Simulated assay, not measured.
Amino acid sequence: MLKGIDPRLNADILHTLRAMGHGDMLMLTDVNFPGVALAPHTVVGRVLTMENLSAPEAARAILSVLPLDTFVADFAARMEVVGDPAALPPVQSEVQAEIDAAEGQPRPMQTLDRFAYYDLAKQAFAIVQTGERRLYGCFMLRKGVIAPKG
């Protein structure tokens, strides 16, 4: 255990978040996502897991230490519902609420169709697979910067 660090962040996750640079992408996925198949294309090269957490719980833990990019519109994205891209399933609105809370203001995520999300995952720094069983619990988070004090 560490002071001030969410205990749900395991050593692999903390190491990855610390190693990421400005603009690097983290794919936060549900249990149905083909993470093992796509992870070899990422910088980390293997799936990281937060298997006992829902997507909103994992997002809250990650966003407690990960700044989101403020320089780009695609600082975060969610996978669109196939056949209904305007739909906002509860899991997605719950993760949006975690983003808004972490940012201190509303910052709507962009959307990506299923196959665009898969392609983006291959370019990511890492894939983190959660225990989320609800469909469309797949998100992209882009790391920002922490400005120096003063």
Results as ranks from 00 to 15, higher is better:
Val44Gly: 13
Pro67Asn: 11
Ala61Ile: 02
Gly21Ile: 06
Cys138Val: 10
Met50Lys: 00
Arg134Gln: 09
Ala126Glu: 14
Leu63Gln: 08
Ala37Ile: 14
Asp24Met: 05
His22Val: 07
Leu53Asn: 02
Ala86His: 07
Gly23Lys: 05
Lys122Phe: 00
Met50Glu: 03
Phe115Gln: 00
Gly35Ile: 13
Arg18Thr: 05
Glu51His: 09
Val36Thr: 02
Val36Leu: 02
Asp74Phe: 10
Phe33Ala: 06
Pro85Phe: 05
Leu53Pro: 11
Leu53Arg: 02
Gly104Met: 08
Phe71Ala: 03
Asp30Tyr: 03
Cys138Gln: 15
Met27Ser: 14
Ala59Gly: 08
Gln96Cys: 06
Ala55Thr: 02
Val81Gly: 06
Leu141Lys: 03
Phe33Lys: 14
Asp84Met: 15
Val65Cys: 00
Pro40Lys: 10
Gly35Cys: 12
Gly131Asp: 12
Met109Glu: 15
Ala97Trp: 07
Ala126Gly: 14
Thr29Glu: 12
Arg107Gln: 09
Asp113Pro: 14
Asp84Pro: 07
Leu28Lys: 15
Thr29Leu: 03
Ala87Gly: 02
Asp84Phe: 11
His22Phe: 08
Ala59Pro: 08
Pro40Cys: 13
Val31Asn: 06
Val47His: 15
Glu51Arg: 03
Arg114Ile: 14
Gly131Phe: 02
Arg46Glu: 11
Arg133Asp: 06
Asn52Ser: 01
Glu94Pro: 05
Leu68Met: 08
Pro67Ser: 12
Ala55Val: 05
Gln105Ser: 12
Val47Cys: 13
Glu98Ala: 04
Arg78Glu: 08
Leu112Lys: 08
Gln129Ile: 00
Val91Arg: 07
Tyr136Thr: 12
Asp84His: 13
Glu80Leu: 07
Thr49Tyr: 15
Ala116Pro: 11
Ser64Lys: 02
Ala59Tyr: 09
Leu112Arg: 06
Arg46Thr: 09
Ala116Phe: 05
Ile99Asp: 12
Tyr117Phe: 15
Phe71Tyr: 03
Ile99Lys: 01
Glu94Ile: 10
Met20Arg: 05
Glu98Trp: 01
Val72Ile: 14
Phe125Val: 05
Thr42Leu: 06
Arg142Pro: 01
Ala73His: 12
Ala97Leu: 13
Arg142His: 03
Glu132Lys: 08
Arg133Gly: 04
Leu135Asn: 09
Leu120Ile: 02
Thr70Cys: 02
Arg133Lys: 13
Glu132Cys: 02
Val72Gly: 01
Arg60His: 12
Leu141Ser: 13
Leu141Thr: 15
Thr111Asp: 03
Gln129Trp: 06
Leu26Ile: 06
Asp74Ala: 09
Gln129Asp: 01
Pro106Ser: 04
Leu120Asp: 04
Val82Cys: 07
Tyr136Phe: 09
Phe75Val: 05
Gln123Ser: 04
Phe115Ser: 00
Thr130Cys: 00
Gly45Leu: 10
Cys138Asn: 15
Arg46Ile: 01
Val65Arg: 01
Arg78Asp: 10
Met140Val: 05
Tyr117Trp: 04
Lys143Thr: 01
Asn52Lys: 06
Pro106Thr: 07
Asp84Lys: 11
Lys122Trp: 01
His41Lys: 06
Leu63Ala: 02
Phe139Lys: 14
Glu132Gly: 04
Arg78Phe: 03
Val91Pro: 12
Leu53His: 09
Arg46Trp: 09
Pro106His: 10
Pro40Met: 14
Leu48Pro: 14
Ile62Val: 07
Ile127Asn: 13
Gly131Cys: 04
Arg114Glu: 11
Gly23Asp: 06
Gly83Cys: 11
